[in-house]
Amino acid sequence: MSDFLGDITGDFIIPIVILVALLLAGAWSTWLERRILAWWQDRLGPNRVGPFGLLQVVADMIKIFTKEDWIPPFADKVLFVIAPMIVMIMMMLGFAIIPFAPGIQIAHFDNGLLFLLAISSLSVYSIMLAGFSSNSKYALLGAMRTAAQMLSYEVFMGLAIMGIVIVADSFSLSKIVEAQADMWFIIAQPLGFFLFLFAGIAESHRAPFDLPEAETEIVAGFHTEYASMKFGMFFIGEYLGVILISALITTLYFGGWQGPWLPPLLWFILKTSFFVLFFILLRAAIPRPRYDQLMAFGWYILLPLALLNLLVTAAWQLAPTL
């Protein structure tokens, strides 16, 4: 009986709690971003609905659900509807392998990191399909940019992570966290961290690498034609992406849930929040590079550096055995 209860808790309750918590976090991070940005930009931000404007998210949700769910007559209807679902599903799946705290993890994969890379490749489809199925020129340009940007930055992301894999000698995220008990990998892999950070920003297509949806250039990029909750799904998907990348940075480079005095889960949340705030700060501070500059930066600077990082890490790791 107790085994059964344990299974129920482990297999159903924890995943559901995590998923719900993530959805809420994704939704409320829109509020957080708006308030924090406003604070940095000498404005007020949403502060009318509920205490500190916290219920703004609820109001937005009601609004967005009651909007006309419009599908442009010129769009490819099936793909148009599927595209926003993919991004949500992939982002949620990505969280499955994140060790939030000892025991709080949905799936214990030994090859968690590979799974993650696969998931993030799949989420590109969401944006590409959205762009192509919209049958709109701005969306097409956005999709073109996305395809190029995300596919190339995935390469550097994978190469940057390999450094961690070598040092931790495992693809499993919980093992990677445990391997950081004595020393965070940011110290062992400083270059790898910066590479991963750049790739992460590009993967979550956040400012300054928000070229797929650069509003001053291509209006809203791939989701130009989307309205109602389908747009909302892209929106929350983007914020979930930010949280996912922040969680990964925390897990891979900053010791995950490890830390003194406070409970592990709180440590994890604190560290992740720090990086979410960092993402918001980036958006407030930095202009957007041009599309070809971004690609050149990736292939001419990040790729050699990533290879160098991999080479040096491998040499370092192998040296004692020779």
Partner: peptide
């Protein structure tokens, strides 16, 4: 600045 993608200066 905003058109080049820098969001904040316009508010200041």
């Amino acid at each position: 600045a905003q058109d080049v993608g820098q969001l904040s200066p316009i508010f200041y």
